[in-house]
């Protein structure tokens, strides 16, 4: 494993730890999109079905199990423990995820390495991950103001995607490894994040600094 891949995985891990830590400290899930978190549960479960079919490494297995369990746990926290049901803000999370699911399914039926259930679900998980953050971004755009939690969380997720790009370059030249589906969907995802950071920077950071005397 190269340094970019490790840094990418660590950023991903960090983003989830930040989310869990903040929820449990504040005893609140305000500002977190339930829809995005449910999409991540679907992403991890459909992608890591290979836990049952092949063993890659202890690291790989542990990370996969962590991602599945933590994503389910976060949904549980939002839905039951620190429920947002009574909050008005919940209807800010009104992104039509049906389109994301349908689009990802369609894309996975067209683009896959083999027309088998496992391969289609794996491709589906890549497409879905590339757009899963959209409900969260929409929610943030609607409220206009992002708190530190969501900003830090999304920043770490963006960092994770950014590190995967030099990782692919490295692997292509060093190992001749090139996974065109992962690279293509990964690039879409990184573009979404960079677009978000650009808008966020323009609207929030610049607006905030211009307000200062």
């Amino acid at each position: 494993m190269n340094i970019f891949r490790i840094l990418g995985d660590l950023s991903h891990l960090t983003s989830i730890i930040i989310l869990l830590h903040t929820i449990n400290t504040n005893k609140s899930t305000t500002g977190i999109s339930l829809k995005t978190q449910i999409l991540y549960v679907i992403v991890f479960i459909t992608r890591y079905l290979d836990l049952f079919t092949k063993f890659i490494s202890v690291y790989n297995t542990l990370m996969k199990i962590f991602f599945i369990i933590s994503s389910v746990y976060i949904v549980y926290l939002i839905q039951y423990k620190y429920s947002q049901k009574h909050m008005v803000k919940q209807d800010l999370d009104n992104f039509k995820v049906e389109y994301l699911l349908a689009g990802s399914l369609l894309a996975s039926l067209i683009f896959n390495y083999k027309f088998t259930p496992l391969e289609i679900l794996w491709s589906f998980s890549l497409w879905l991950e590339s757009v899963a953050i959209l409900p969260q971004l929409m929610m943030l755009t609607r409220t206009g103001e992002a708190d530190m939690l969501t900003t830090n969380y999304i920043f770490c997720l963006g960092l994770y995607r950014a590190f995967y790009i030099p990782n692919w370059f490295y692997r292509y030249f060093a190992e001749g490894h090139f996974d065109k589906l992962a690279v293509f969907t990964g690039l879409i995802q990184t573009l979404l994040y960079s677009d978000f950071f650009y808008i966020y920077y323009k609207n929030v950071i610049q607006a905030r600094s211009s307000k200062l005397p």
């Binding site: 891949r5 490494s57 790989n60 990370m63 794996w122 990782n167």
Partner: peptide, 10 residues
């Protein structure tokens, strides 16, 4: 025999 892509990334 087709070349399988090694899926060792997360």
């Amino acid at each position: 025999k087709e070349e399988r892509v090694k899926k060792d990334e997360l």
